[in-house]
Design a binder for these strands. Structure first.
Lengths: 198, 198
DNA sequence: CCTGTTCATTGATCTGGGTCAATAAAGAAA
DNA sequence: TTTCTTTATTGACCCAGATCAATGAACAGG
């Protein structure tokens, strides 16, 4: 394990992105509240169906958020190191999670509990602002994803995925990519075939 | 026009939803900053392509947010009275708006300027919290929309729209509904035909 | 190294939505 | 009312993706 001093460097940077002048006075209490945990590839990090009380910063590794409609695993999103993950919807609403979170690779996560976050909101208005900015950023992410879902056909979505998230294609099995694009593995295979012959 | 005293009742209620103990001290300055304006059916409220500096509360009427990909108007969302509208994405990022806003019916709107809102954030931490809660709510709205886009076929989306937003079907021309569902008007017409024969 | 399992590809067939074109119905304006 | 325009429906044809089934390729465990 890293020396404690540098341990939370990445998550600190993450917050500084949103609030460059985050005070040390507000920052340090957060580190006390984080729960560090490791997961093996394939391990379930957060269960679907239960209320999710945590948001999790990915220090290392990659995870998928998935649901189980039609009895098959449908990929909602991939998350990689130095991002937050978790069923934010369930976290915010205290309703049962629509998504499960599973380790795609060996992972190290820092978990923050809902109650811990509320305490931070109460004690430091700075977190209220970070919370707003992060919620806004999440809104933007989903909005843009939406626009692409509506406007693009599967083939275009795949091309854009290659262009915009090249490494994702490398790190993620193809049938998960297919699911993420909203098509069957067979269809993605054919899309790829069609594209090479162009 | 309504007596000033009751004029902002609806928008006040809207904020109270998010922060029931919003102080009068914080509330009153907001009313000073709102710009009241009326629009005729078909009128453009907010231009696509320009940076959008406003969020707008719909006191009365209905609007659509649309884009113009492929040279045709594509409906992104419908908004009705007692909701906020506007290209929130452009508002947050100061990038050119991807969506235009148009009056579907005669409307009365209360506009709040970006700079006014920033001033409120600085003066009253209460607004920082409301801002966070609203951003979170918007996140939830687009997340749920997303899930439906991915998981449901056009026919199911139409059925759910009837179930969940019945009045929308009444108030909105069918070709806009089709666009909103992500299909052509012809396809929606056939979906409807298929459904009656069931 | 072999073996069983998981993942990817290919083929055959079906279907819902796209597109183009024509008509019908509904609304708006005179 | 009549007329003009906008909106909705229907038909014919095409195509991308779904589904089901079979085969190949890659990979992990022993």
């Amino acid at each position: 394990m890293k020396p404690a001093k540098f341990m939370f460097e990445n998550i600190h940077q993450y917050f500084l992105q949103f609030l460059p002048n985050l005070s040390a006075r507000a920052w340090e209490p957060l580190t006390e509240l984080l729960v560090v945990k490791s997961y093996k590839k394939g391990e379930i990090i957060s269960d679907l169906g239960a209320v999710n009380k945590w948001v999790s910063f990915i220090e290392k590794g990659a995870v998928i958020a998935f649901d189980l409609s039609d009895r098959k695993k449908t990929v909602y999103e991939f998350f990689f190191e130095h991002q937050f993950t978790g069923d934010y919807e369930s976290f915010l609403t205290s309703r049962p999670a629509n998504y499960g979170i599973e380790a795609l690779e060996d992972c190290e996560l820092y978990h923050l509990h809902f109650n811990s976050l509320q305490k931070l909101y109460e004690r430091f208005p700075e977190y209220e602002r970070i919370g707003r900015l992060i919620a806004e950023a999440q809104f933007l992410r989903v909005t843009q994803k939406n626009a692409k879902l509506m406007g693009e056909k599967p083939e275009e979505r795949y091309l854009n995925l290659i262009k915009e998230r090249e490494e994702l294609i490398q790190r993620v099995p193809q049938y998960y990519v297919a699911s993420y694009l909203g098509v069957t593995p067979e269809a993605l295979s054919r899309i790829r075939k069609r594209l090479v012959s162009k």
